[in-house]
Design a protein around this nucleic acid. Structure first.
Lengths: 116, 116
DNA sequence: CGCTTACGTAAGCATGTGCTTACAATAACG
DNA sequence: CGTTATTGTAAGCACATGCTTACGTAAGCG
């Protein structure tokens, strides 16, 4: 999941994903779409996307057809949805400590340390 | 928008976001939640999150209270939704070329170049 | 005023990343 | 078989990134 987000953080890879969103495309066609970059760079980007399970690879002769894995995309979508709807359980402990901290009740709970 | 995705790609920053999702927290409280990292590192993470507009900063005395900006998160959510529902217009040209490419009609359209 | 608290920030370092150039491997074609 | 097409991959480089240590600064307290 981490890999998917990291992969998505790169604009070039997002563009690649859009290219292979509906139809599969051979690596060369994808690379040709970018005029300012080498085919090798695209190949490496495809490697990252594949490692993140964001694209599938189908071999046809010497060519490799890539296509976006919309199912994995959906997983990521739900992960993000969960991220900012739930996930409050882990906060309970900190929320209480935070409340205590924010109201500044004691202030004498630490030793004489400010920085490492 | 790019900045937001890059910021979200870091697990530590996601954790920070969850911490300040509901209640605002001072930087120190946030840093204390992570035992294996320096307060300075967290401060820098907060800087990234703030630059990406994913957190808001409110000053209270010497402290700075951080809170997740759920509105910006929502923007990012819709951006992602648009990403994989629309965005097909840019594909039209490539889709046609791809179709032609995929069915392997001519094959003699390139010059004698394989690599740079 | 000094001292502490809470925080940012500069400097440096190790590692990650996106890119290019060059080469290697496999499949089709004659 | 040799050649061409299609692709991956190793090596290297410039630059970003996450981290630590050290220092600087503004606000409160005695």
């Amino acid at each position: 999941m981490d890999a998917a987000l990291k992969a998505l953080a790169e604009p070039r890879r997002r563009e690649i994903l859009r290219l292979v969103w509906i139809d599969e495309l051979p690596a060369t066609s994808i690379a040709e779409h970018f005029g300012d970059v080498t085919r090798s760079a695209i190949s490496q980007h495809l490697g990252v996307l594949k490692a993140a399970d964001l694209v599938s690879e189908r071999r046809d002769g010497t060519r490799r057809l890539y296509r976006a894995r919309q199912d994995e995309m959906q997983k990521l979508r739900t992960f993000l949805d969960d991220f900012w709807t739930s996930g409050l359980e882990r906060l309970r402990d900190v929320a209480e400590a935070a409340q205590r901290e924010i109201e500044r009740p004691d202030k004498g709970a630490t030793d004489g340390r400010t920085d490492p």
